[in-house]
Design a protein around this nucleic acid. Sequence first.
DNA 1: CCCACATGAGACATGAACGTCTCATGTGGG
DNA 2: CCCACATGAGACGTTCATGTCTCATGTGGG
Lengths: 182, 182
Amino acid sequence: MAVNREQVLRSAAALLTRQPTATMDEVAKAAGIGRATLHRHFAGREVLIEALEELGIQELEAAIDGARLDEGAADEALRRLVERIEPAAGLIAFLVTENQLFEGDVHEGWARTDARFAALFRRGQEQGEFRIDLSPAWLTEALYGLIGAAAWSVQDGRVAAKDFSYMVVELLLGGARRSVRS
Amino acid sequence: MAVNREQVLRSAAALLTRQPTATMDEVAKAAGIGRATLHRHFAGREVLIEALEELGIQELEAAIDGARLDEGAADEALRRLVERIEPAAGLIAFLVTENQLFEGDVHEGWARTDARFAALFRRGQEQGEFRIDLSPAWLTEALYGLIGAAAWSVQDGRVAAKDFSYMVVELLLGGARRSVRS
DNA sequence: CCCACATGAGACATGAACGTCTCATGTGGG
DNA sequence: CCCACATGAGACGTTCATGTCTCATGTGGG
């Protein structure tokens, strides 16, 4: 009887990832509930987006935790990270774009994840694994960008879904990893 | 007296790049003209976006032409390309996001530029400069993604504007260029 | 078994942006 | 100099999504 909040959020995330401009009515339909019920659980579109942001950050932080970024080689840690991010890539891409669109204050959680990403890149630089001429801040932004590009490409069928993790990690690592150069 | 269409498009591009959800009224204000006049030149928001798309593709193709992608080493060609794209990066990022949002048929121009990008990457692979385990299609998407990430980062002041070209090219090339690996 | 309560469907009001229209104005070209 | 014409300001009607409300319904728990 009682609506499963988690389930509603999941279906909303899935829909909005594909169709960011979807109506509250469409979100409700996608969740298999009425628009009124949707409003009873999420007072408005803004609240719904905030809840999705909460969910996305939660999953992102879970991925970071699970990847144990401070253990082992930095490139291996990055590999573990992207693999764990993949399931939430679509949602992350949606939220990043959403944050780009509206100038309202950003959720504090993003600062936390940004810092943890940057810390990984900094560690890699200090240990001599990553090149130092690309700042951790840029590498962090680039990671978000590549995740979004890959998520959209897979969604539109331009590239195979199974290659997601490989493509992102290999492209980013190749650029971030210090290599023999002339 | 007569409104300068080009100038209106430029200011609209500048505004929408920063604020993609800007109103027609805001676009008009930004151009220093009345909303009615804006409507006289661009029948509706959709028409305005189409005109901006035309402008963006035009600049992108001009950048591609100027970069002479089929001359010299592929990595140098890519370097020339990104340098010439930079001035239009914000507009390109806006248009790519816009295309991602709406499911309406995409402008044919994107297929042309995509093909020329992919051709460059393919040439690099065939000449042994670029690694072959990342498809030209993915490298093309990654290039768009990195350009967008860099444009937004610069816009928000997270990274320095002068580093734009260097950051994009170095990260993308490092990943695409075949390097000594274990 | 029965009632409380969450739900679904839909009506209704609101607000925002859009597109159209009118009219006064001022300038630029003939 | 004078008139045609593009412009600016704003009023107006329309559409669309949103948010609120009511009411009938059906189920689940006591």
